Amino acid sequence: MRNVPTRHALASHTPHADPRLAGRRLEPLAGGWSGETFRAEPSAPGQVTLVARYLAAEHHAPEAAGIQAALLRQVSGLLPVPDVHGAFESDGPVPGLLLTELLPGERGDLVLDRLVAEGRDDDLRTLGRALGGVAGTLAGVRMSDVGTFADETLRIEPFRLVLPEWVDDHAAGLAAVGWSGAEVAALRAVAEDAVPALAGAQPCLVHSDLNPKNVLVDPAGPRVTGVLDWEFAHAGHPATDLGNLLRFDRHPAYVDGVLDEWCAVVGRATGFRPDPAVAADAARAADLVALVELAARTVTTPVVRRARRHLRAIARTGDLHAAP
């Protein structure tokens, strides 16, 4: 097993020999921040190109590959997700590995940016509907409790999260990156006001990183051809993925499309179509969890910077919908 790439080796972004890949040649794929996803090119005729995703980060449990494989199989009839070709648990310094089908399409964030730049409102609305439909479909996959997935059986380990307490838990982290006590107190007040917007919802399957960067799109549609990167999936609130889709991308036509289709899909599943304004409030409240966690991180990335700016605007104005 000494030829298998280790966590340290993966940081170099270069191809590595891995006996689990049967001699395939690895080429780094663009996108994301980890540098852990590769095209696994075949070395023999008749084989198909795969995607090899190494689960090498500290937050990846040894069972992470099996959990993600089980999730992809569960939603394969509901959403366009890649077929699973193999899942390997981590073993000491050897990271877990998930092998999946290579799907067609362009990254959704690139398509979205192009449509905004070109002022194509109709296509922005269509793309928004396509992504809102994904989030609405996940909101209809009911779960027995709120929590994380423990293993490939998708057994749920419950957790409880209350927004004001979540802010308290991250207050030290926010202070460490420059937040004053008054700013944290203002944010906690917003969190208290947001609690009712999340009350009474049935837990569902949450992708938890559902943004255009993690979706493949056929630009001609535009339609979704792949929903990727399920590493943060859990059982949670049905507005969580909606909030992620609307976090930073706020072009009116796109937002209208996302909300319209999310409400339509949820309405068909439950028999009661939510009001878009109410859904938007719940989405912002649910997304406050991610914004707080991102803003309090010690490592700064472009996403963390944006989260801090948005969260400060929310704390300053007392408005969940505020933007810098």
Rank of each mutant, 00 (worst) to 15 (best):
R2Q: 11
V4Q: 13
A9S: 10
H13K: 13
P15A: 11
H16M: 03
H16S: 05
A17P: 12
D18I: 13
G32Y: 00
W33D: 14
G35A: 04
E36C: 13
T37Y: 04
R39P: 02
E41R: 15
P42G: 07
S43E: 11
A44Y: 14
G46K: 06
Q47P: 02
V48R: 15
R53L: 03
H60M: 07
E63R: 15
E63Q: 15
A65D: 10
G66R: 05
Q68S: 02
Q68M: 06
R73C: 06
Q74H: 09
S76H: 15
P80W: 12
V84D: 04
A87N: 06
A87K: 05
A87Q: 08
S90C: 10
G92I: 02
G92M: 02
L99R: 13
L99K: 05
L103I: 09
G105H: 15
E106L: 13
G108T: 03
L110Y: 11
L112W: 08
E118C: 01
G119A: 08
R120W: 05
D123P: 04
L124R: 07
R125G: 04
L131E: 11
G133L: 00
G136L: 00
T137E: 01
A139C: 00
G140I: 01
G140Y: 00
R142V: 11
R142I: 04
R142G: 00
M143K: 14
V146C: 09
T148D: 14
F149E: 11
A150Y: 03
T153G: 09
I156T: 14
P158D: 06
F159C: 09
V162L: 13
P164F: 01
G173Q: 14
A175E: 11
E192G: 13
D193Y: 00
A199C: 04
G200S: 00
A201D: 04
Q202N: 04
V206P: 08
D209T: 08
L210H: 04
L210C: 05
V215E: 06
V217I: 15
D218H: 13
D218Y: 05
A220P: 13
G221L: 06
P222C: 15
G226M: 10
L228F: 03
E231M: 10
F232K: 11
H237N: 02
H237Q: 01
Y254S: 00
L259N: 05
W262Q: 00
C263E: 03
V265D: 00
G267V: 01
R268G: 11
R273Q: 14
R273W: 12
D275E: 15
V278C: 04
R284Q: 14
A285P: 01
A285S: 07
L288H: 01
L291A: 03
A296Q: 07
A296D: 07
A296V: 06
T298C: 08
T301M: 07
P302F: 10
V304M: 03
V304R: 03
R305S: 12
A307N: 08
I314F: 07
A315Q: 09
P324I: 13
